[in-house]
C-alpha cells in the first residue's frame, strides 16, 4: 500500500475542484486518480460519469471520460468496454444515480459480470439537485422531499447496495469503505485499487461503495458532517469487503 501522496496525480488536471467545503467527492477523485497512476493505465482508462455533483468530473480527470445520462453509466460503460475490451473502464456514480434511477443498469452490469469497475459515492442524499431523499437516506433523516423525516413505513428502508449486489455471481469484488480519517482513506484506496485489478485480470464486475459527506445539503459544518457520518451512516452501512474472488489476496 503506497502512502497517500499530496503531489497532484497525473490523472488529475491542475484545476481546483468546485465541490463545497468538506465534501468528500474531491478526496475520492484523488484516490481514483492515484490508483490509475499507480496501475499505469491512464492511457487506456475511460471514465464514465453520469449526472450528480460529480458530473463535471471530466474537467478534473486527466484521461478519457464520457458523461452519461442519469443512472445509465453502467450501460454506457458496457458499451465502451465491449468496443475496447483492453481498456480500463470505470463508472463514478452517486447514490441517487446508482441506487434509484439506475438500479436496473447497475444490477444487470453486475449480473453480466461486466468487466468494469464502479466507484459508488453514497452520501445519503441527492447533492446536485439540492438535497432530496435518496434510496440510501437513513430512516428519520429529513430532506427536502422527506420534510417529515424518511418514513420506512411509506418508502421502505434504505438500500444496502453492496449486500444486494453480493448475491449476484457476476460481481466478483464488493467493498464498502469511507474516507473519514487517514486510516480509512488508505483502506479505501486499497479497495479501489483491488477493484481495478479485478477488472484488469478479466474476472468480472467490481464495485467499491464510499460513504461520503454532503455538508451543504445535510446543513452541517464539514466537521459535524464527518461526525454524523460516523454516528449514523457507519452503523447502517458497515464497512468491509463483502466479496472477493478466491486467490485474490485481501
Amino acid at each position: 500500500m503506497a502512502e497517500i501522496a499530496f503531489a497532484r496525480p497525473e490523472s488529475l488536471h491542475d484545476v481546483p475542484f468546485h465541490y463545497c467545503p468538506g465534501c468528500h467527492h474531491g478526496i475520492i477523485h484523488r484516490l481514483v486518480a492515484e490508483v490509475i497512476d499507480e496501475l499505469k493505465v491512464r492511457d487506456r482508462t475511460i471514465g464514465v460519469v453520469p449526472v450528480g455533483c460529480s458530473v463535471l468530473a471530466y474537467n478534473y480527470f486527466n484521461f478519457d471520460t464520457q458523461e452519461a445520462a442519469h443512472g445509465r453509466a453502467p450501460a454506457t460503460a458496457t458499451g465502451v468496454k465491449r468496443v475496447h475490451p483492453d481498456s480500463v473502464v470505470f463508472t463514478y456514480q452517486g447514490d441517487g444515480d446508482l441506487a434509484s434511477i439506475g438500479c436496473a443498469e447497475i444490477v444487470h452490469a453486475a449480473a453480466r459480470g461486466e468487466k468494469i469497475t464502479t466507484v459508488f459515492v453514497n452520501n445519503a442524499i441527492y447533492g446536485m439537485t439540492g438535497g432530496q431523499m435518496a434510496p440510501t437516506t437513513l430512516p428519520e433523516q429529513v430532506t427536502v422531499t422527506s420534510p417529515y423525516g424518511r418514513d420506512p413505513e411509506k418508502v421502505g428502508m434504505p438500500i444496502r447496495v453492496c449486500e444486494m449486489l453480493a448475491t449476484l455471481d457476476g460481481a466478483k469484488f464488493i467493498a464498502r469503505v469511507a474516507v473519514n480519517n487517514p486510516a480509512n482513506m488508505a483502506k479505501a484506496k486499497a479497495a479501489i485499487k483491488k477493484a481495478f485489478e479485478i477488472q484488469m485480470s478479466g474476472l468480472g464486475f467490481a464495485i467499491v461503495e464510499v460513504l461520503s459527506t454532503c455538508p451543504t445539503n445535510w446543513g452541517m459544518t464539514p466537521l459535524e458532517a464527518v461526525a454524523w457520518l460516523e454516528k449514523n451512516m457507519m452503523p447502517y452501512y458497515p464497512l468491509g469487503i463483502f466479496k472477493t474472488p478466491e486467490g485474490v489476496a485481501k
Binding site: 439506475g102 438500479c103 432530496q132 431523499m133 434510496p135 427536502v144 422527506s146
Partner: peptide, 22 residues
Amino acid sequence: LIEYMAKRLPQVDGVFLQAESE
C-alpha cells in the same frame, strides 16, 4: 414543485411518492 408536494400532500391526506426514476 416536487418538494412542495412532499410537504403539502400529507397535510391534505394525499399521497406523495418520490419514484426511483421518471
